Simulated assay, not measured.
Amino acid sequence: MRAGLPIALPGMRVGLLGGSFDPAHEGHVHITEMALRRFRLDRVWWLVTPGNPLKAHGPAPLAERIAQARRIVHDPHVEITGIEAQLGTRMTRDTLAALQGLYPRVRFVWLMGADNMVQFDRWDSWREIAARVPIGVIARPGWRMPARFSRAARMLWRDRQPETQAGQLADMVPPAWALINVPLNKQSSSAIRKRLQRTKT
């Protein structure tokens, strides 16, 4: 095991929530709590992405985003990580392959908001991602119905599990996915960034 990576025992159910978290906010905390409960996970790891250094207006520095996330997360079952920077991966497919090699007996579940499910078919190697791990989709304001009828959802319709089986998702052989309806939290990182920019001008 590489130094600095999270500890996970064989058989543990670990949800992976990737994103820039720029900044992390209570909406992220909310969907994490819902995922822990509804998918019956032992842990959720936030994978704070390094960001694209070629973008002129990229995210805040990784260490800053990780530190800010740790200030708002108080659940010991949630670990804030910079795994992709540590592993040197950028694509979700490569990150999952590396984690499954490092933790061969951990039951990973990829977590995403319903808004991401809508454009999941545009992700690089999205079918390979779906074939590697079960996917837990969490409802977000205005995105529940679009997620249900998205191109990826239609192409994976045979693999969709009823919401009543969400607690068994981690034990299922992929491809398998479930969408859970949860109380909605309207916070978003982009809205927070816009408010911060307005206060600076």
Rank of each mutant, 00 (worst) to 15 (best):
residue 201 T to V: 11
residue 195 R to V: 02
residue 168 Q to W: 02
residue 56 A to L: 08
residue 99 L to V: 08
residue 105 R to M: 11
residue 30 H to I: 01
residue 12 M to R: 09
residue 5 L to H: 05
residue 191 A to M: 08
residue 89 T to H: 05
residue 55 K to L: 06
residue 68 Q to L: 09
residue 18 G to F: 03
residue 8 A to P: 06
residue 138 I to V: 15
residue 13 R to N: 05
residue 154 R to L: 10
residue 73 V to T: 08
residue 34 M to I: 03
residue 21 F to S: 04
residue 3 A to P: 08
residue 19 G to C: 10
residue 167 G to T: 05
residue 19 G to H: 04
residue 196 L to S: 11
residue 165 Q to H: 14
residue 45 W to V: 01
residue 45 W to H: 01
residue 131 A to F: 01
residue 162 P to E: 04
residue 143 W to E: 12
residue 27 G to P: 07
residue 107 R to A: 10
residue 21 F to Y: 09
residue 37 R to L: 06
residue 120 F to S: 00
residue 122 R to W: 06
residue 122 R to T: 15
residue 63 A to P: 00
residue 80 I to R: 00
residue 150 S to Y: 10
residue 138 I to P: 03
residue 103 Y to P: 01
residue 43 R to W: 13
residue 151 R to G: 02
residue 3 A to V: 12
residue 84 E to N: 00
residue 65 R to L: 08
residue 148 R to A: 12
residue 94 D to T: 00
residue 38 R to H: 15
residue 25 H to C: 08
residue 58 G to H: 03
residue 130 A to R: 08
residue 79 E to S: 02
residue 156 L to M: 15
residue 73 V to R: 02
residue 107 R to M: 07
residue 135 I to M: 13
residue 21 F to Q: 06
residue 35 A to V: 04
residue 50 P to H: 05
residue 192 I to H: 07
residue 106 V to W: 14
residue 178 A to I: 02
residue 122 R to I: 01
residue 101 G to Y: 12
residue 31 I to S: 06
residue 132 R to G: 09
residue 137 V to K: 07
residue 107 R to C: 03
residue 79 E to N: 00
residue 61 P to T: 08
residue 121 D to Y: 06
